[in-house]
Design a protein around this nucleic acid. Structure first.
Ligand SMILES: [Mn+2]
Ligand SMILES: [Mn+2]
Ligand SMILES: [Mn+2]
Ligand SMILES: [Mn+2]
Lengths: 148, 148
DNA sequence: ACTCAAAGTTAGCTTTGGCTAAATTACTTA
DNA sequence: TAAGTAATTTAGCCAAAGCTAACTTTGAGT
């Protein structure tokens, strides 16, 4: 009838450790992924990506963006001369492209499931960083089956 | 045929800010939620929750657990005398219970969708912190429809 | 009752990603 | 073209969550 009161799966300790480690790892890539995705969108939308706009979209202060851009630059995902606007490297473009695809896959799946578009967009922003390849494939299949 | 190359929804800037703020807020509650859930499981499973076991399950060092337990105590979710084992307060038990339910809802949904149990368990550990009430309701409905 | 190993805590370090205030640069416009 | 404003960066702060090394306490086994 109702659900059992405790987590059923006494999965092995090692398995559980792997899960939590994966979550921590995902959170380490999250900032970078969201930044390149937004930078690509801004370039497409307005022709250029400037720290001001990034700060405005994320809802953070400008110095936060400057600091985070240093990491993107260190990881060779962007080109950025001081006081100039931001370019994506080829690697950055590729990462942005795959993040964008994954983002859309998640949003479209949630909408196909019956969730309202604004909530789908909202939840996807967090969920996208935690879906494995297998899950992504199942999401895509479901979405395609729903609306052919 | 293929997907449009950029994010279609030129949702308002305010909307986008709210989404990213929600993700940041979720990440602030995440540690606390995973801890109370694990503590409840350990008490149920072994009769008591000790820092050692928590560290072992999360895959972190013991001092990390000690530090995080201070926050749970500050937030009145646990009772913990130094060197003794950990008890949940009533508030802690309630939070653990709702986190556990949400966790199970996500896992069962992913399994009902066709994802393998181990991957479902893996992805749920991250996803659970990013599902809104609406999404959770849809997940539950889907799971129930699938296997009556 | 003592000993001592295991568990737990404390101290102190690191990284990440927030912030504000102040300094600097670029750009617009008068 | 010079000034003034807006954008950007720098400096320096904070909190969270990880770590190791060193210290303290507990409690099991003799
Ligand atoms: Mn995101
Ligand atoms: Mn997350
Ligand atoms: Mn979790
Ligand atoms: Mn969980």
């Amino acid at each position: 009838m109702t659900n059992p009161p405790f987590n059923s799966a006494p999965r092995s300790v090692q398995e559980q450790v792997r899960q939590f480690e994966s979550v921590r790892t995902a959170h380490q890539s999250e900032m970078v992924e969201d930044y390149v995705e937004l930078i690509a969108d801004l370039i497409h939308l307005t022709g250029s990506a400037r720290p001001k706009d990034i700060a405005e979209r994320f809802g953070v202060a400008q110095p936060t963006v400057t600091k985070n851009l240093a990491r993107l630059k260190r990881e060779k995902l962007i080109l950025h001369e001081p006081y100039r606007s931001i370019q994506l490297t080829e690697e950055g473009r590729q990462l942005a492209s795959s993040c964008r695809k994954r983002h859309r896959t998640v949003v479209e799946f949630l909408i196909a499931l019956g969730i309202s578009p604004s909530v789908a967009e909202h939840d996807a922003e967090g969920i996208e960083h935690h879906v494995s390849d297998e899950t992504l494939r199942v999401f895509r299949a479901f979405t395609h089956d729903k609306k052919p």
